[in-house]
């Protein structure tokens, strides 16, 4: 199934090809073409969501593709706090306890990982991509971790 992310990746590859070509100006034209259509369809979606009202819009979000399109255009019926909290709940079995500390006016999402499983870089990127998926307006995701406990392991061998 196609997704907005896959479509965006394809668009960026094509625009990059034009930018590297003999006339880089064509990349700017292509950029403007995409902008024209994305904004037109965005305006259409905005009117659809407006007509459906909050309940109808929430029902639309049952379809993951439609939900991600609503996110692209800032039309999702749930606010970022609600979306992020729900995403953290889904992550809990894999990364442990996570709290949303806040979303700054600067677009920085601050989280606290309290779980005993620590927070390695792989987990960090897992958390970050989960947050970005439901809150593309996030500029940065910061994860606070408690100071590491002294780990006692058996000497190998």
């Amino acid at each position: 199934m196609t997704t907005p992310d896959a479509a965006a990746a394809r668009v960026e590859v094509l625009i990059e090809q034009l930018r590297a070509g003999p006339d880089p100006r064509s990349a700017l034209v292509a950029d403007e073409l995409v902008r024209c259509l994305v904004q037109l369809y965005g305006e259409g979606l905005r009117r659809v969501v407006e007509r459906l009202g909050p309940e109808g819009a929430t029902a639309l979000c049952d379809d993951p593709l439609v939900e991600s399109l609503l996110l692209v255009h800032d039309l999702h019926p749930a606010g970022p706090r609600e979306r992020i909290t729900r995403a953290l709940e889904r992550l809990r079995p894999r990364v442990g306890e996570l709290d949303l500390l806040g979303i700054g006016d600067d677009g920085v999402v601050r989280l606290r990982a309290a779980g005993s499983r620590g927070c390695g870089s792989a987990q960090r990127s897992l958390i970050e991509s989960a947050v970005r998926r439901v809150a593309p307006e996030a500029v940065r995701v910061e994860v606070e971790t408690p100071p590491p406990l002294l780990q006692v392991t058996r000497r190998p061998g």
Partner: peptide, 21 residues
């Protein structure tokens, strides 16, 4: 303005029309 298609929902970032910087 964010990843993916979101950058097309807002006005473009001005770029040099000769080298695209």
């Amino acid at each position: 303005s964010g990843p993916g298609l979101r950058r097309f929902t807002v006005a473009p970032v001005p770029r040099c029309e000769l080298c695209a910087t």
